[in-house]
Design a binder for these strands. Structure first.
Length: 215
DNA sequence: GCCAACGTTGGC
DNA sequence: GCCAACGTTGGC
């Protein structure tokens, strides 16, 4: 596994030391709801956010754009550093080998979708939770009870053109008015989630944009 | 750099 | 188990 570099990390892992109460996984959906949900909606397409511009946390550069993924061995890397329960649950419970992912650039000059990657390894323990030097260290995670998980993603291709957030946003807004495909897109309804599901219809619609002129 | 939105913490 | 305070995300 390549060393240290972190994707958009969502909320920080709990930093507190002296928890009386174990709040572990409190934000998980109750088992029943979770079962029900995944029975109803099972996703095979995703958006994963990462920061393509340098930003230092604890002296570590969090930069990891699609060009960085390309440079990895086998153009593959582990998606470590996710510290949000919903994002984790998507990775842990629903991502399967072969699923397609839009690689999204966040917290940068021009946010948007840069390319496509795919899941090549399903959920396993995110080692960075145990590493006190890592910006995403979680002191509450124990080796025998890991809290955070990751998947491996492999670069597939760049989009024919970068699809900026601004374009998706204006489509989202007009689709909200006319019932179009992107009306419920998680990118806007769940803006802070760094790992989000994309419906087949949304995926096809967005992919088609790369063939069009920028509007 | 600002700050709205929203997830998390922890006292009660 | 509520909810105020706090912390983070990420667009702008």
């Amino acid at each position: 596994m390549p060393p240290k570099k972190s994707k958009t990390s969502d909320a920080k892992g709990p930093k507190t030391s002296s928890r009386k109460r174990k709040r572990e996984n409190e934000n998980d959906l109750p088992a029943k709801v979770e079962e029900k949900k995944s029975a109803v909606e099972s996703y095979s397409h995703w958006i994963m956010k990462s920061e393509p511009e340098s930003r230092f946390e604890n002296g570590v550069d969090l930069k990891f754009g699609i060009e960085d993924l390309k440079k990895c061995k086998n153009q593959t890397d582990c998606w470590d550093g996710v510290r949000n329960y919903q994002a984790r649950n998507f990775m842990r419970d629903q991502m399967k080998i072969g699923h397609k992912v839009f690689f999204y650039h966040s917290n940068c000059k021009e946010p948007g979708i840069a390319g496509i990657c795919k899941i090549v390894k399903e959920s396993y323990v995110d080692h960075t939770q145990f590493d006190s030097k890592d910006p995403h260290y979680d002191r509450s995670a124990k080796k025998d009870a890991p809290k955070w998980f990751m998947v491996d993603v492999k670069f597939e291709r760049m989009l024919k053109r970068f699809i900026p957030l601004s374009e998706l946003k204006s489509l989202h807004l007009s689709h909200k008015a006319d019932g179009g495909t992107l009306k419920n897109m998680a990118l806007f309804t769940r803006a802070r989630l760094s790992v989000q599901p994309v419906t087949q219809e949304e995926w096809d619609f967005i992919l088609n944009l790369e063939n069009e002129e920028k509007t």
